[in-house]
Nucleic acid binder design. Structure first.
Lengths: 343, 343
DNA sequence: TTGAAAGCGCTAACAG
DNA sequence: CTGTTAGCGCTTTCAA
């Protein structure tokens, strides 16, 4: 154990192995330079003995890759994102990266500060799920030429092409509604997050499209939205019951949670009293009985796609931006009652 | 927008502001050097115009702090850890740090690789929840003089003092059991994770101590453990019923989940058929009815304590290690039935 | 096959 | 008050 305050450097290794720092550097950067095996061994042994670890910071200022990637998400508590983060991290790890996870908490100003700090750290690349789905901070990434991919939230009216990986929100709303229609329901409500983000609106569009397709009128009062909280969900749950619909699409898992609590607390049974399809698959859905029918978003595929897109975009920085929209699946539970068609 | 491939450096700013790189450096490191306001303005303006951001990597090799902290946890999917991470990150952010989150997945070898990479990145400090509660990798941190605090899992027989923040596992087992005893139960089982980690054993010790205190015999067959999965939990749930106990301590939320699913699927009602106290407060507990009585671990306090301890230990590296064990609380639900004492 | 040395972006004496 | 300059640990010519 070294007694010195100073960190162990390449120079210490060179002295210990009685060679030059250049040789040590070559040994540790396995360039295609041939080094006599005996010397290489000596260097490795010396390094191991004094506990040398290459300083990645110093290495990076000479133009080498930094070895750090970042993921910036708007809602870290949301397990949809947490799970994708875990997967992206493990893919990045295989490539030798360390990954910094950041949470903007849906605040563009926080996000800006985070991105500036990440830029100061000279990260090699970044996966960004933009706060409030706002595009503004991405210019920082572009200006500093940091390869990046936008995850899950797009910029509908944008003039600038981005690397993008998301899932099809329209389709998730459509599938959920269609599933209920197929079971014979006609009075179907939609409850969701009153969100500033286009995603959620697209789900409503999908809901409407499905209804229209079967010639069912989509009355505006059947579409309810509220803030992103279980309490708002409870209120919507109560409304659902008052309105006397036979089925509902729970358009966001956070408000869905409140609605389900309301149902349980007031003896409302699914699917007997109301049929339900929820968009999303939060962990808690796994413990509820009867099991909910959910729309499963392609988390795994999204994580893999965004990680690979980022890695590719680091490898070939001039590659034109790619946009991928991945499909959802219906995950059947027992929360939808088939009712006889009334012709 | 610069057309150059190269990053913007202090030198570019100096040229643009027609001054020296030293002045620019001083402007951006707000040392106590006085600079004529007019010049300072000019530098700032030039920097803003060409989008200069200080290269933290270069800055760090001159002995400045790196600006990166790390949290390495063994189970990233476990929301107990996720929630603490979110809090630690937000405290660290206030101090200007960027935080890297890593997941060793309960594998000491992965953990070693992660720590080596973090050391290469010259992180300023680290919060570590050690895989399998093993001490071995902490020597890397010590050898490289990286301030660190061990979170949640301790090293019982260790000779080396560590900064440590954890919660009192013995007490959590004790409290849970005591709560059931107070409600009049006498045949109380314990089910938990068959863990290689001392924490879980301590919970059993607490369980036994509570029973002993009231002169209730703690038969060995009442203590069940299994692997960390919902399936193992289901099996234990079935056993609980077969054994005909009136109450159970669900000693780990992951196996508890399985047991609760078994109960629901087989029409076993809590608290009518069995009284339950669960150690831990996973998010899914919030959607179950009747609400479970839980032992709440001091997540918030642990996050705050570990973050502050780390920051302190970075500020004063020679401070002797501190160890903190924080207490749990009973969070009452409706899963415990009071039964009349049989004298 | 190896080593000397220039230089990456930045900091901090030290000189002016 | 400001600029010159010597490094920090590392990579990479270039020469030996």
């Amino acid at each position: 154990m070294p007694k010195t305050r100073r960190a162990v450097t390449i120079k210490d290794v060179a002295v210990k192995a009685t060679t030059s720092i250049a040789t040590v550097s070559y040994v540790f950067s396995n360039a295609d330079r041939y080094i006599r095996p005996e010397l290489r061994e000596r260097v490795l042994a010396a390094a191991a003995e004094i506990g040398y670890v290459k300083n990645a910071a110093a290495s990076s200022i000479k133009g080498k890759r930094r070895g750090i990637l970042a993921i910036v998400v708007a809602q870290f508590g949301n397990s949809f994102f947490t799970r994708m983060c875990v997967e992206i991290v493990s893919i990045a790890r295989r490539e030798g990266y360390v990954v910094t996870l950041c949470n903007s908490d849906e605040d563009p100003e926080q996000e800006r500060i985070i991105l500036e700090r990440l830029i100061a750290q000279q990260i090699d690349g970044c996966v960004l799920c933009p706060a409030l789905s706002r595009e503004e901070n991405t210019h920082l990434l572009r200006r500093h030429r940091i390869p990046h991919v936008i995850l899950e939230r797009s910029f509908p009216g944008s003039l600038i092409p981005h690397n993008f990986v998301g899932h099809d929100n329209f389709q998730s709303g459509y599938l959920a509604t269609r599933h209920l229609l197929n079971a014979g329901h006609r009075r179907i409500a939609f409850s969701g997050w009153d969100s500033p983000i286009p995603n959620v609106c697209e789900r409503v569009d999908g809901y409407r499209a499905a209804l229209r397709e079967l010639g069912v009128s989509a009355a505006d009062e059947l579409v309810m939205t509220g803030e992103l909280s279980a309490d708002a969900g409870r209120r919507m749950g109560a409304e659902l019951i008052e309105m006397g619909v036979t089925a509902a699409v729970l358009g966001h898992h956070e408000t869905a949670k409140g609605a389900l609590l309301h149902f349980q607390d007031h003896g409302v049974r699914w699917p007997d009293d109301i049929s339900l399809v929820m968009i999303g698959t939060p962990e808690w859905a796994g413990v509820l009985r009867p099991q909910l029918t959910c729309i499963r978003r392609p988390e795994h595929e999204m994580a893999v796609a965004s990680a690979n897109l980022l890695l590719k975009s680091i490898a070939t920085p001039d590659h034109p931006p790619v946009s991928q929209l991945l499909p959802c699946l219906v995950q059947e539970g027992k929360s939808v009652l088939a009712i006889p068609q009334v012709p």
